[in-house]
Amino acid sequence: MSETNDSDELGLNPPPHDPRVDRRTTKLAVVGAGAVGSTMAYAALMRGAARTVALYDINAAKVEAEALDLGHGIQFMPMAEVIGSDDIAVCAGADVVVVTAGAKQKPGQSRIDLAEATISLVGKILPSLVEVAPDAVFVMVTNPVDIVTYAALKISGLPPHQLFGSGTVLDSSRLRYLVAQRCGVAVQNVHAYIAGEHGDSELPLWSSASIGGVPLLDWRGPGGASVLDEAARDEITHEVIDSAYRIIAGKGATNYAVALAGSRIIEAVLHDEKRVLPVSSLLEDYYGISDVCLSVPAIVGRNGVGERLEVPLSARELGGLMRSAETMRTISRRFGL
């Protein structure tokens, strides 16, 4: 005779409920509690991206204060835990590690000017981060992001799918915002990407852009007038490239939009969304481009960055992407990478 109660087999007497079974265990670690890092933690919390958000910074008073301030607002957000420390162990077991720590960009300074100091900093902290969170997906958000991402891959030894940069996710958002304003449509209906360097050599992929399924180059305004002729497109391109400099000149840092862009990447990873995002990753024979980190549309999910999509490119766009790649290679060689 079986000692098992028939009622148990039928599920009529289920075992006591263990609340840990339902607990979401997603953990986000944000490295750097400056303007970008603290705002990214805030954005991730507001969007309910992770169950635990850990802030790490070498400035103990600053990071603990940021975590406390964020924690005081949890009542008004999706439930989460916020912790902050100057001990790197606070990042242990993270599912996603976002690195925002780096040299601060000053008015008139290019992103490339920051490279040496930021690469040195990444070299000091990244090995310890990999040690405490070896299975995490690492997202570099510090500038110059393409060079820093390439250096971080060399320093960490992580596979290219596990570490990538935020790339031109923000730049593409700026592009869509400006196109939406010019065309009088919701920004959510604009589909367009900036590719290449997150910087002065980046380029919009006009030939594959669309608005509500209509190719962007065919878009017409009232009365059939063209609102996106070459002059208008050039103007938008320059504004996308120059916007960060304008914001830094006016308020000292960009933080809101980059934090929202970063939180979107975080969600794509934690929720395994398989979302197409123009992140900066190591390219291998992408239209003949290899051994350089650049932004192209790629599928982002729980394992990090996946397939890079070979979107249609015009001859001009392909040439621009190759020039951007060569610019990055030249800079990489300058730093011995």
Score class of each variant (00 low, 15 high):
Ser166Lys: 04
Met140Leu: 15
Arg176Asp: 01
Glu239Cys: 10
Thr4Val: 15
Trp206Arg: 11
Leu163Thr: 02
Lys106Arg: 13
Val90His: 02
Ala41Lys: 09
Thr25Asn: 08
Val132Cys: 03
Glu116His: 01
Gly123Asp: 08
Lys154Gln: 12
Val169Leu: 11
Glu116Gly: 00
Gly167Phe: 08
Ser226Phe: 13
Met140Asp: 01
Val139Ile: 15
Val63Asn: 02
Asp86Tyr: 03
Leu70Thr: 03
Glu3Gly: 07
Val300Leu: 05
Leu260Ala: 06
Gly71Leu: 05
Ile155Asp: 11
Glu267Pro: 08
Asp69Trp: 15
Ile147Asn: 01
Ser263Phe: 00
Gly71Gln: 06
Leu158Gln: 07
Ala249Ser: 14
Asp18Met: 04
Ala249Met: 04
Val99Met: 10
Glu310Arg: 12
Lys62Trp: 00
Gln75Met: 04
Gly213Asn: 01
Arg176Ala: 10
Leu126Tyr: 07
Val36Gly: 01
Gly319Asn: 06
Glu131Ala: 14
Pro278Trp: 00
Ala80Lys: 07
Arg174Glu: 02
Gly213Thr: 05
Leu68Gln: 14
Val132Ile: 09
Gly213Met: 07
Pro15Arg: 10
Arg24Tyr: 04
Val169Asn: 11
Trp206Phe: 09
Ala231Asn: 10
Lys27Ser: 10
Ala298Trp: 01
Asp171Leu: 13
Ile289Phe: 03
Gly157Ala: 05
Val269Pro: 13
Asp234Pro: 11
Tyr150Glu: 14
Lys62Thr: 06
Leu45Asn: 04
Gly301Ala: 15
Ser314Thr: 15
Asp285Leu: 05
Asp113Leu: 06
Ile58Asp: 00
Phe335Trp: 09
Pro134Trp: 15
Val269Arg: 07
Arg316Glu: 15
Thr39Trp: 06
His271Gln: 13
Pro134Asn: 15
Thr26Ser: 14
Thr100His: 09
Gly167Pro: 07
Lys154Thr: 05
Thr327Lys: 12
Glu81Asp: 12
Glu197Ile: 07
Val139Gly: 02
Val148Glu: 12
Asp272Trp: 02
Tyr42Pro: 00
Asp95Met: 05
Thr52Lys: 03
Ala259Glu: 06
Ala225Thr: 14
Gly336Pro: 09
Leu158Thr: 04
Ile125Pro: 00
Pro15Glu: 08
Gln181Arg: 14
Glu66Thr: 07
Ala186Ser: 06
Ile88Gln: 02
Lys62Phe: 00
Ser38Asn: 12
Ala54Ser: 07
Gly199Asn: 09
Gly157Leu: 04
Ser173Thr: 14
Thr100Gln: 01
